Computed example of a mutant assay.
Amino acid sequence: MSKRTALAYVPPGSIVKVIDVSGGYGSIRRLYEMGIVPGSEVKVVFNSAGPTVLEKNGTRIAIGKGLAMKVIVEVLSHE
């Protein structure tokens, strides 16, 4: 069973698949440049106070909560 939610609400240790990215041109462009595109998989490393830290292909990426709210993901697994 899969669950879709905003990236800002996903607990650390989860592997997620990006379903949709919404927002203005600047927000979408910034996320796409970091590789956060529909169909990509990322691991949530840290997601409490402060920025959301993701790991993609061995690289850690930090995004603010505002951007994390614009990324809709499907939770694939949780450690």
Rank of each mutant, 00 (worst) to 15 (best):
1 M>R: 12
1 M>Q: 10
1 M>W: 15
2 S>A: 13
2 S>Y: 15
3 K>V: 12
4 R>W: 10
4 R>C: 09
6 A>L: 05
6 A>K: 13
6 A>R: 10
6 A>E: 14
8 A>V: 15
8 A>G: 05
8 A>H: 12
9 Y>E: 13
9 Y>N: 14
10 V>E: 02
10 V>C: 02
10 V>N: 01
11 P>A: 04
12 P>A: 15
13 G>C: 09
13 G>W: 01
14 S>P: 02
14 S>A: 13
14 S>C: 08
16 V>Y: 02
16 V>P: 00
18 V>A: 03
18 V>L: 02
18 V>P: 00
19 I>H: 01
19 I>F: 07
19 I>L: 07
19 I>T: 05
19 I>R: 06
20 D>K: 14
21 V>F: 12
22 S>T: 14
22 S>K: 15
23 G>H: 07
23 G>T: 11
24 G>Q: 01
24 G>S: 08
25 Y>R: 12
26 G>I: 09
26 G>M: 10
27 S>P: 00
28 I>A: 00
29 R>Y: 13
30 R>D: 15
30 R>N: 14
31 L>N: 02
31 L>Q: 01
32 Y>I: 04
32 Y>L: 13
33 E>P: 08
33 E>H: 14
34 M>R: 12
34 M>H: 11
35 G>L: 07
35 G>T: 09
37 V>A: 06
37 V>D: 06
38 P>E: 07
39 G>C: 06
40 S>F: 05
40 S>K: 08
42 V>S: 01
42 V>W: 06
43 K>C: 04
45 V>Y: 06
46 F>D: 09
47 N>E: 01
48 S>Y: 14
49 A>M: 14
49 A>R: 15
50 G>P: 02
50 G>L: 05
51 P>E: 10
51 P>Q: 09
51 P>G: 13
52 T>C: 15
53 V>A: 07
53 V>D: 03
53 V>Q: 03
53 V>S: 08
54 L>K: 08
54 L>G: 02
55 E>Y: 03
55 E>N: 10
58 G>S: 07
58 G>D: 02
59 T>H: 14
59 T>P: 00
59 T>M: 12
60 R>E: 12
60 R>L: 10
60 R>G: 01
60 R>I: 08
61 I>V: 09
61 I>S: 00
62 A>T: 05
62 A>N: 08
63 I>C: 02
64 G>R: 11
64 G>Y: 04
64 G>E: 10
65 K>C: 05
65 K>S: 09
66 G>R: 11
66 G>L: 12
67 L>D: 07
67 L>G: 04
67 L>W: 04
70 K>M: 13
71 V>I: 02
71 V>Y: 03
71 V>P: 00
72 I>L: 13
72 I>N: 07
72 I>R: 13
73 V>P: 01
73 V>S: 00
74 E>L: 02
74 E>H: 00
76 L>N: 05
76 L>M: 08
76 L>Q: 08
76 L>D: 00
77 S>P: 04
78 H>S: 12
78 H>F: 11
78 H>Q: 06
79 E>F: 10
79 E>G: 08
